[in-house]
């Protein structure tokens, strides 16, 4: 194992601090179970996977995402396991899997999960799909459509990780945003503020800064 990915230790400490005593004890026990190496399969989930599913009831919905990420990390869940949990999971479980990807999957193997979430119109899933994992791995065409999807479904573009860095100098994204703004205007509808914001971010780097 290659050590704890950045951020996960702090996330666990923050989650435990926020939980009440009973929930904290439950999470510690569940995380120990998860770390035990038990693996589940399509028919029979490992015990910790049932804890993953019930984390909302045990920790409260406001802490459930973080608790689930803690469990996934403690289990060192690999891509096949994450895929199974995503496919068998309800929306909240899927969201936690998506949020855990940057902590657990170093390469692009888990992109099908991100793409699946981006096909939904569930804004909770769309927002979770455009996190740091998508910023690092989603190919340009899919990433542009993900940004547009946020604008269409009303997901604030603040949810898009690495937005400024990926948008900079993206002439195709600028073209798509311009067309969308034109379509809105032709329909007599307002152009969303977020569209203008992203459009401004597509401005190419100052050429003078690159010269000399």
């Amino acid at each position: 194992m290659t050590g704890t990915p950045p951020g996960i230790g702090a996330l666990r400490a923050r989650t435990e601090a926020a939980l009440g005593e009973a929930a904290r004890a439950w999470l510690d026990k569940a995380a120990t179970e998860a770390a035990s190496g038990d693996t589940g399969n399509q028919q029979t989930p490992a015990p910790w996977e049932l804890r993953f599913a019930e984390a909302g009831r045990r920790c409260g919905t406001e802490h459930a995402d973080d608790a689930r990420i803690v469990l996934l990390h403690a289990a060192r869940a690999d891509t096949p396991t994450l895929t199974r949990l995503y496919e068998q999971g309800a929306a909240a479980e899927r969201r936690a899997v998506l949020a855990a990807l940057p902590h657990l999957v170093p390469g692009p193997d888990a992109l099908p999960l991100v793409e699946d979430a981006l096909r939904t119109n569930d804004t909770r899933l769309v927002a979770a799909a455009v996190g740091p994992y998508a910023a690092e791995h989603l190919p340009p065409h899919h990433w542009r459509h993900a940004v547009l999807k946020c604008l269409f479904t009303g997901v604030p573009v603040d949810a898009v990780a690495g937005l400024a860095a990926r948008a900079r100098g993206d002439a195709e994204l600028a073209r798509m945003l311009g067309d969308y703004a034109h379509e809105r205007t032709a329909a007599g509808r307002a152009v969303p503020d977020d569209l203008r914001r992203v459009l401004a971010l597509t401005t190419p780097p100052n050429p003078e800064a690159e010269e000399s």
Partner: peptide
């Protein structure tokens, strides 16, 4: 020998 109903996408509609 059927016609086709082809929708245009929500995003990037003209393209």
């Amino acid at each position: 020998e059927l016609p086709a109903l082809v929708h245009t996408p929500h995003r990037d509609k003209l393209a």
